[in-house]
Design a protein around this nucleic acid. Structure first.
Lengths: 303, 303
DNA sequence: CATAGTAATAGTCTTACGGTATCGCCAGAT
DNA sequence: ATCTGGCGATACCGTAAGACTATTACTATG
């Protein structure tokens, strides 16, 4: 029966084939010469043919040479299997799928963190999928993504999260708007302005956050136009459809027809959070978090 | 230590990965479920990481999937190694180097035997090298060829041989020669003719055989020209340089300017023999001999 | 003929592995 | 809520593989 064959036989045979000497091969294997003799004899019993010619010197037979080629490959694959399993389990290798809200990548720390992760974990395939916050939470639950990068950490028993960036809100106004020069900027002054916003379903907590800020300033925003992407909202403001408030990173979009004003409320900020399945203590996820957190000592930079 | 790993672990793991069920996998392996559980546990201890998730159902972890790919290849190679070693030792596979004197291949049985061997042993690479009889004996001793096909079996303690073909000698004369019509042909009539022959060193026993035949006919051949290849000697006869005697197979070279005459001596024959190292009971050699002998019941056909 | 080098053999002990019996856990039915 | 069946884990025991020490057998070489 072939099933008698063990990797130990292969290891012994390969050492012998490479040393052409029972004593030296045994030494290399860390066993004694009689033990090696036994292993080789057993191997020849299993295969049913002579693999090694012992006299006048140790040398492989033709069958032995044929065996040797495959044996070495077999052993290499076995060792590689162990090695790769270990690296995979340590999160050094494998597939990591990350959902992102496109606008989060405007914060320079985040692309930088991704780049650093790829450099430190070259064997991890990082697959990035753009999706809304709501879609990410669903995708996490369905295990379609391993991590989500979204705005406003959700309160969820299954999903854990960690705030990675804190951003102030800014008012976004078309150039030439009658409020465009005020500084510092009171949110209340937008009370009667038409708003460009996003649908609540895309990210209810974030939507609520925006509305609550307006409430605190004494008004309820009058939404005249919706657009899911913040870039689109800014463009619509630029086109004169209304005003909006948005996270500070949006100021990276600059243009002649657009003006940003920092709000005067210290509580007017929003957070970007990294989310994962709470029960999934996957080391890949840990590794990504480590890199993201590790790159600057203070875990929550604010802009 | 990786060195703890055994093929048994791999076999168990692969069965489990394919069945996704301890009971069924164990059954397929011909062992009981607790034994399989132990093997998998041990494997996970060796690799140092979980390879199998057991709840809610048996499924591989990502590390397990990575392990699986290599493990299967490793096992396949190990099994292939055994299989190929066995086939090689049976002479069904490997390299068989055959030295031949070119003229022997003029006897139709021999190319036919080679063809048949290739058909019945498709995994044996048959390498044919043209060389003189003397060169073959040396090459056999140096293990540069496994078999030699030559004229006149040598008496040699190291080299075994088997006669495979017996051929009559024929006289080779230029057309129009004054003896070219005599039939049956007495060798003695060539007594005073100039001979085209080969150097004794190419094959001393064969040379001696030719000379002894002439002696028996009452003369010593007067050699006026030497050529190692029998084809060349015939061409030289054709060109009128002299006469010669040669094995009957040479009659396959026919032409307007050449005439063959069968000698009237019944003892005027020569043999083609297959030779091998006496101590080398290689099954490839056996296999070749079997095919060569087996194709016609009578082992020594004569022409 | 003696000797050194090298592989094979003998005898003993440890450990791996397989078997039987049984436990623990979870899901679906009552 | 409790019962029950399916399934994997654990406990314990017996057999056999494998390693070690000591020794023998064979060869090539001085």
């Amino acid at each position: 029966m072939t099933s008698q064959l063990g990797l130990r036989h292969l290891r012994c045979f390969i050492a012998l084939a490479e040393e052409n000497h029972f004593g030296r091969a045994a030494e290399r294997l860390g066993i004694t010469q009689p033990a090696l003799t036994q292993q080789i004899r057993r191997l020849e019993e299993i295969t049913g043919c002579r693999l090694v010619r012992r006299r006048p010197r140790v040398a492989l037979t033709e069958a032995g040479e044929a065996f040797f080629v495959r044996a070495r490959r077999s052993l290499a694959d076995a060792d590689a299997a162990v090695d790769i399993a270990r690296r995979t389990s340590r999160g050094e290798r494998g597939l990591l799928t990350l959902g992102v809200v496109p606008s989060t990548l405007l914060v320079p720390e985040l692309p930088r963190a991704i780049r650093r992760f790829r450099e430190t974990h070259p064997e991890v395939e990082l697959r990035i999928r753009e999706m809304s916050t709501t879609e990410q939470l669903e995708a996490l639950r369905l295990e379609r993504i391993d991590l989500g990068l979204l705005r406003e950490a959700p309160a969820d028993s299954e999903i854990a999260s960690k705030v990675v960036v804190r951003e102030r809100f800014v008012a976004v106004l078309p150039a030439g708007h009658h409020l465009a020069t005020a500084e510092p900027f009171p949110l209340a002054s937008l009370a009667s302005e038409p708003f460009v916003l996003f649908g609540k379903s895309l990210n209810p907590p974030f939507y609520t956050r925006v509305v609550d800020l307006c409430r605190a300033a004494g008004f309820f925003p009058r939404v005249v136009q919706e657009a899911p992407e913040v870039q689109s909202r800014v463009s619509l403001v630029e086109a004169g459809l209304g005003v909006t408030i948005a996270p500070a990173c949006i100021q990276r979009f600059c243009g002649q027809d657009i003006v940003y004003r920092t709000l005067d409320m210290p509580e007017a900020f929003t957070t970007i959070a990294l989310c994962w399945r709470r029960r999934d203590r996957s080391p890949k996820v840990e590794a990504f978090l480590d890199v993201l957190m590790g790159q600057h000592e203070q875990p929550v930079p604010s802009t």
